[in-house]
Write a protein that binds this DNA or RNA. Sequence first.
DNA 1: CATGAATGAGGCTTCATTCAT
DNA 2: TATGAATGAAGCCTCATTCAT
Lengths: 215, 215, 215, 215
Amino acid sequence: MVYRQTNRIKEKIECKRREIIRAAREVFAENSYQGTSIKTVAQRAKIATGTFYLYFSNKEALINTIVDEMFSELLEYIKNERAVYTDGFDKLQASMEACIKLFIKENNLAKILLIQVPGVNNAFNAKLIEIENELIKLTKEDLDELKVQGRLTGEDTLVSAMAFVGSFRQVIIGWLREGRPEKLNEAFSTLMQYNLRGLGKKPNHNRQENGEDER
Amino acid sequence: MVYRQTNRIKEKIECKRREIIRAAREVFAENSYQGTSIKTVAQRAKIATGTFYLYFSNKEALINTIVDEMFSELLEYIKNERAVYTDGFDKLQASMEACIKLFIKENNLAKILLIQVPGVNNAFNAKLIEIENELIKLTKEDLDELKVQGRLTGEDTLVSAMAFVGSFRQVIIGWLREGRPEKLNEAFSTLMQYNLRGLGKKPNHNRQENGEDER
Amino acid sequence: MVYRQTNRIKEKIECKRREIIRAAREVFAENSYQGTSIKTVAQRAKIATGTFYLYFSNKEALINTIVDEMFSELLEYIKNERAVYTDGFDKLQASMEACIKLFIKENNLAKILLIQVPGVNNAFNAKLIEIENELIKLTKEDLDELKVQGRLTGEDTLVSAMAFVGSFRQVIIGWLREGRPEKLNEAFSTLMQYNLRGLGKKPNHNRQENGEDER
Amino acid sequence: MVYRQTNRIKEKIECKRREIIRAAREVFAENSYQGTSIKTVAQRAKIATGTFYLYFSNKEALINTIVDEMFSELLEYIKNERAVYTDGFDKLQASMEACIKLFIKENNLAKILLIQVPGVNNAFNAKLIEIENELIKLTKEDLDELKVQGRLTGEDTLVSAMAFVGSFRQVIIGWLREGRPEKLNEAFSTLMQYNLRGLGKKPNHNRQENGEDER
DNA sequence: CATGAATGAGGCTTCATTCAT
DNA sequence: TATGAATGAAGCCTCATTCAT
């Protein structure tokens, strides 16, 4: 009996914590980290200012939590989307597709990760860099695998991975900031072609390639 | 009337103005715009807080001046480097080379432009975005020219320009933040190859081109 | 939800607001508006500087509130004192009596309204001028009424009203500043006589008035 | 030789000092004491900020000088205007006429004395009060003389003097602030009548003039 | 003497965080 | 736990005054 109640209470607490995070994501996406006061976050979450500090030790803890979560979300999403594929190029494409899908779906996430938060505070900035690096690392792993398979012309996989990620980043930011290019989905395939060429994808002599590539 | 507005004094004043800008570039590069107080800038420039306001009407005027200057510096630099070339691809490459050279030379400029950039203050942010867009626009113009000449396979020159700029940006940022890749110059040529392939550079009719480009 | 916006708490808040106003009235009366810092007001009210801004949006809002309140207080007071009378001269006298009574009772009010008044801040000053003009206007209305009744010799009721108000003002200020004349009440009747003569009060039909009034 | 040069230099210095005062009177009249910076005064006087401090030890010394001068000017003016008359009422009227003439002539003087400066700073305020009191004192002396002559009905000459001065002050301030009443000269005679009645001036029938006046 | 750049205390205001209820 | 009033450090900016030239 007591146990269950405890559980229910824990749930409630977790629920309110989630609500604060949700509100903060909204507000940060709109106003930037520094431009947002705890009071504003609290109001959006429909709690009192002081209550905020029952759930987070301070403002930085909140943004850390948010970015950590976004990180996990992103990686989780990518992982799931990749799970279907075995071919290196397919996995690569799936990764990027996952990013874009998530960014489209979770606009605030994208805005915070790519636009609102960077350049704020070094301690915190590190986290964003970590995310970016992780993405580059994943990409590089894919490229290394492909290289081993002899399916890539390009040499330096780190630089390639950076270029790969950077090109996507630029297009997404443009879209977030100014809605340009208008159709992200279309841009995406153009971009993918661009990068595959850039990577030096070798034509797949074998017929079996036909079916595999674009699926 | 012993005190005269001699050239020497005028020079000194201009010199102090430059010194403030120099100090501010340093501090902004380290701490971001919002994270930097006028007091800190003044201390770095070795002047009193009030003195700052003799040279700039307020904090925003300072950052505007800085970003404007960086903008000019960058464009000027690019323009000069391009002046030597007539071929589209050469000009494209010269542009990027100019960026990288300048960024290597003026570390703070790069940090402010690329790292401390976004999510800060809309007025200020707008200027940075403008710079980025200008660079993309310049790139796109080169691509359009090349396309007209039938020397590109790629279709959407806007997306291509974004990818192009974005890939460079990513590599430069990595280098700024973590010194990785270590040798920016080497990375640069790799990157250039990557993007030329990405753009779909066609072999230049003349046989001598054959070997180099895509292999 | 242990903390409740009970009536007691609301009372306390209103009480603190009043306390700030009280403190501000004191300090303004001593030091003038411009010579008074929010910090000083806060200290006098025994709150932190920041707390002030929970009750007033800024310094100007405070002074506006104070002057508005004083205005209302004064007019209310005058209105009440006049309510008893129907005769024009009686009402006139009642008005002035009301002013003097209130000024004696609320020393700070008088000091702010009459001494710390002018030359300070146009927005604020305007309000004080408004009060003065309102008093002159009220007086003029009384005089116009009396004139219509043929009970006044004097011609220009505006100048008369100004003279009337100005003479009272001067005496009150003297008393506020230097305690001279010592007995304001006695001075008041002298002053009233002075002004009634000045206005050209006609003997009231009955002959007995003859000798006294104008000779 | 040296002597003359010194004199000429002294003259020059005094001349610049006058120029600063002139400028300050202008600016103070426009902006109030607290609202005026030394820089503004200096600019108006066409000198450098630092130069100001060669002529006045600080801002307060300037305003003190100005008010002292205005005081002297006013008293001098009054004295001169009164010199022509021997009759008490005439002298009284001459005093007020002098004030008004001077205020009309020297608008800045009036604005500073009556509008801009009071309520600024206690130390300084004292000086203005002194001026006002002096004027009241002079008036009271006239009234006392008239009273001794049996030409006044009114009793308390201090209150009368205050009322007298106060009524003029009010009208002048109204005119300075809002240009109301429009014609100060006309208002002046109305006002004089008002106050003469208020003072209880006895009618000067024919011969009895002789007898009454001096009684 | 003159200049105007330099100084820094001090004013207003915001906001992350604490605390009494 | 929840509340929101209270706190005070810190930021931006002004301006009387000083000082090197």
